[in-house]
Design a protein around this nucleic acid. Sequence first.
DNA 1: GAATTCATCTGGAGA
DNA 2: TCTCCAGTTGAATTC
Lengths: 257, 257
Amino acid sequence: MPLELVHAQPGVEEAARILSHGIEYRMWISFFANCTIEYEGRAASRTTPGDRLVIIKPDGSVIVHGPRGFKPDNWQPDTSSITVQHSEGLLIVKAVRRRPREVLVIKCGSIHSIMILKSPEEGGFWMYLNEHEIRDLLASNPSLIEEGLRIVDVEKRIDPGFVDLYGIDREGRLVVIEIKRVKAGEEAAKQLARYIEYFRRGGRSVRGILVAPEATEAAIYRLSREGLEFRRIDLARLYGMLKEQAKSSRGILRYLD
Amino acid sequence: MPLELVHAQPGVEEAARILSHGIEYRMWISFFANCTIEYEGRAASRTTPGDRLVIIKPDGSVIVHGPRGFKPDNWQPDTSSITVQHSEGLLIVKAVRRRPREVLVIKCGSIHSIMILKSPEEGGFWMYLNEHEIRDLLASNPSLIEEGLRIVDVEKRIDPGFVDLYGIDREGRLVVIEIKRVKAGEEAAKQLARYIEYFRRGGRSVRGILVAPEATEAAIYRLSREGLEFRRIDLARLYGMLKEQAKSSRGILRYLD
DNA sequence: GAATTCATCTGGAGA
DNA sequence: TCTCCAGTTGAATTC
């Protein structure tokens, strides 16, 4: 049973007491405050005052969010120490990181509200269909790319980088396969072209296939210009296959449906 | 004067009412809940139940944090709609994005606490020494790179991408300059090589200089093999120059020290 | 520990 | 809209 506490409009002194206690007992803290942020480390920055949401997690991560967007205004992923002080009507939270040496200072003029959670529960884990899994699924089901294709190598290292899949088609020709989990842009086509060029320089005849859910116009054009091919894959279908696999093997993915 | 509200242990129905109201009036919401997350879009994922912090910002961004680390468990940066329902003892928050089509569903079994802020104030803005500023500083002080160098163009667009700085040295030769704010890896050297190749294909003799605080072994080797040069810059010195500039011009950077 | 690569990367600028 | 590229990128894996 989690223990939660909420505070509206605490004074600076009370807020300092609450935060110190929460940090000491590794609680999970979230508070709204009007504050400035100062950061010095790999870069240096300073902000004007504004309303922000400050999060301090049980593991010591500190994250400061502004009112817009996905990205935090500032953060400290792996703090070695967090200290709380109050002086001259300001609440000051200082988070220090050792390597690289970085200091984050949050100066709060007023604290609007504080929420604290002492949770006995670990966050649930999660799983998703990433490029690795797409690659492995295609490696074990190469007919999804082309009938008669046989995969010889996965993540084959060559000079310009890594070839996702490397196989032989039904007519015995070498096939280099580049996989993108999202819409493939021209850059992906260029990358495949670089790999192919490497093999052709070595005097080998080779086909190149870009595999992705979709591709931009520029990518398609670049592929055709380089004598390469595009093969569309259906992510939802692959996800379904993964779920089937998971069900039959009763593996880690059993939570999927 | 911001308006803030806090709620401890609201029931599912009350929580739904509070959240709907907050979203409708574009308030800033933060709540602790035991929940699962389902996401389908560019990837697909589902989690087991766990305690998490959910943030809904005035601009419609949704962020879900687990108890550890800097990165959120899940998010939706630019929602086109957020809906709140309750059914069978569950509070369900659904955030949908149009392009790319993505759906994020948060199912809460219990809500530990809710914090809401109606803030009249925009978050403060901030500034730091980024690659942009390094580039501009070097453009107006090219002797920091080389005595007698004259800058002709900044962010010059060519086919393979953008050239950071483009100039002419004291002997009248063309110079292409690639800047990195952090330690330059082999990829930076390759990028410069691609630019240089573009000019040399055009039949022009040209020097290439990689400018960075430091460079990896692989980068240095690649540079020497391609007949390119490396020039170390001192970030602290540039930062000092920036502060001097800011002081004398009383410009936007006056907060820096 | 350094270096390399991926990420639901995000975000911004330019054509 | 697409493309290119920076980021206090972070995080994981390999060397």
